[in-house]
Structures are given as C-alpha cells and as structure tokens.
C-alpha cells in the first residue's frame, strides 16, 4: 500500500464482497417477484442500487484499515440514497394506481417501498460481513479466502432474509370458495350481504354467471384485527385482481360475528384455485400486523 493506491489484497476483498452483496440483492429480487412488477427496467434499477449498496459495504472496512476515515462518511450518504429508493418506489407505485384493475392502497405501497429500502441494507450488511471474514481469515490461498468470505456472506444473507420474511394471509387464515347469489339487485356470498350495486339486469346476470368469490376465515379470533384493516383487504383484492384480471366490479366485505372476509369480483380468467392461491400468498402488511403476545404482555406491572 503506497501513494494512495490500494493493495491487491484489499482489491480482492472489495471486489469479492461487492459481488456477493450484489448477488444477495439479485436473489432477494427473485424471491420477491410477486411483489415486484416484472418489467426489466425496474429490475435493473434495483439491481444497480443493490450493487452500490454492496460496494459501500465492501469498501467500509478497507477504508478504515487504510486510515481513510472520511470515506466512512459515505455510509451516511448511502443511507440517504436508500431512503430515496423507498420514496422513489412509493411515488412510482402511486403514479400507477389509476392504471391498475383495483388500487394497491397506501398501506401496501408503504410495505413494498419499505421492503425495497430494507433489501439494500441486506446487500450492504452481506458485503460488509464478507469483507470482514476475508480480512480475518488469512491464508496463503486467495481462492480459499474468497470461498470462505462468500460462504459467510451467503449465510448472513440467509439469516437476514429469514428474519425479515413477513407472514402471508395463508399463515393466519383459511381461504375457501364462496357461493355467489344475486337476489334482485343485491349480491350475497355464502349468505352474507356484499353490495346492492347490481342495479341493472346486465350486472346481475354478469355476476351470477361469471362472478368469483372467496371467503377468508381467520384461524384465531385476534387475526381479524389485521384482516379487517382496510389497507390489508385492499392489498388482498389487488393481488387477487392482478392474478385473474377484472372484467367488472370488485368488492370486499367484512363480517364481524366470525371475522370472515369476502373477496369477490368478475374476473377475466375464471380460476378459483388460482384465486385462493393468490389470496393466501398476499403478504400480511407490516403496518397492520399486531403481535398478540406483545399485547398480552404485562409491561408495566399492571394486574
């Protein structure tokens, strides 16, 4: 190391850690394909931001070791950039709201935007841990150092991914097909009133012939609190509508006696199994999730 040039050793560390961190972003993008629209440019943008995050994580330790303390301030700049990623993702999804079959809703958009910000931190941490490992494990074989660094990086990635993985509707509720019935201009699913918006004969016939419905049954009574949330129901309806398409009408309805939730619409593709699957896979939104065990905890010594 001399004249401000990095040594070969550090260059290998930085390059390896950056690659592992970028791969971590790539793998998390793949796992998240359902949430993320599959247009290639959005994919590329997130991959590139992930690469930047990985590079920042990779250079942090070599910068410290070469006494480039000012370089560490880049971390704060990077964090600001990742916050901007969240904002950009939120703005982009909000701009698309009027083009979708149904609205995603602010709660779902907030959840997706947060996830994208968090994924960049995963990249940063993974590359940072890879770099630390490679600097700690000193061997004569460079290949072995790279291998150990990459293995540790992927283990860290797996652990963080597992920790940050949220639940989905299928984890807390059962989803079954609902029976549609049109009585005059009113729509019922499994004998539960949904709407009276079917005022025309065309609408009534369309729903009776082509309508599709599912009923969500919470496994525990307290899960209703999350399921009843308007943002959560909107997210379920959005995922269902995106899976099958919407020809006309889309409704959600909640029932308080048993906590059932109804999702019904007239789809373009009539496939009940696909609908049930997409409802089950809808993420339980972070902003509406309530921890029942925490709510029962005796925090301040109350009887």
């Amino acid at each position: 190391m001399g004249d401000g040039m990095l040594s070969k050793e550090y260059i290998i560390v930085i390059v390896t850690a950056t690659i592992v961190g970028t791969l971590a972003r790539l793998f998390s993008l793949k796992a998240d394909l359902r949430q993320y629209p599959s247009y290639p440019n959005g994919y590329l943008i997130n991959l590139f931001v992930g690469f930047i995050a990985a590079a920042v994580g990779a250079v942090a330790l070599p910068a410290l070791l070469t006494k480039n303390f000012t370089a560490i301030t880049f971390l704060t700049v990077a964090i600001q950039q990742f916050r901007d990623v969240r904002k950009a993702e939120r703005d982009s999804l909000k701009d698309l709201e009027n083009t979708e079959f149904t609205k995603r809703g602010d709660a779902y958009i907030d959840g997706i935007a947060k996830t994208f910000e968090a994924r960049n931190y995963i990249s940063l941490i993974v590359s940072f841990m890879t770099a630390i490992t490679m600097l700690l494990v000193k061997t004569k074989m460079v290949t072995l150092e790279i291998l150990i660094g990459a293995i540790v990086g992927f283990i860290v990635f797996y652990l963080i991914k597992r920790y940050s993985k949220g639940k989905s509707i299928g984890d807390i509720a059962d989803v079954r097909e609902g029976k549609i019935e049109v009585r005059d201009s009113e729509l019922f699913v499994d004998d539960l009133y949904v709407t009276n918006l079917l005022g025309t004969e065309n609408g009534q016939n369309l729903f009776q012939k082509e309508g599709i419905a599912v009923v969500i049954y919470p496994r525990e009574r307290h899960f209703s609190i999350a399921l009843d949330n308007f943002g959560q129901r909107q997210a379920i309806l959005f995922d269902a509508a995106r899976a099958l398409g919407v020809k006309r009408y889309s409704f959600t309805r909640k029932e308080y006696a048993e906590g059932r939730i109804i999702i019904t619409f007239v789809p373009i593709i009539h496939d009940v199994n696909k609908l049930i699957e997409s409802v089950k896979n809808t993420p339980l939104l972070e902003s509406v999730k309530k921890s029942h065990s925490v709510m029962q905890t005796n925090l301040v010594g109350k009887e």
Partner: peptide
Amino acid sequence: QKQMTQDIAKALKADVVK
C-alpha cells in the same frame, strides 16, 4: 326507466342501485 338508467351508466361507466 331501465333503459335510461342503463344508457347513463354505460356512458359514464357508473354503477346502478335499484
């Protein structure tokens, strides 16, 4: 009455309540 309602609803992409 039915025809008028349907025509307006179709033109404005609106819903109908009877």
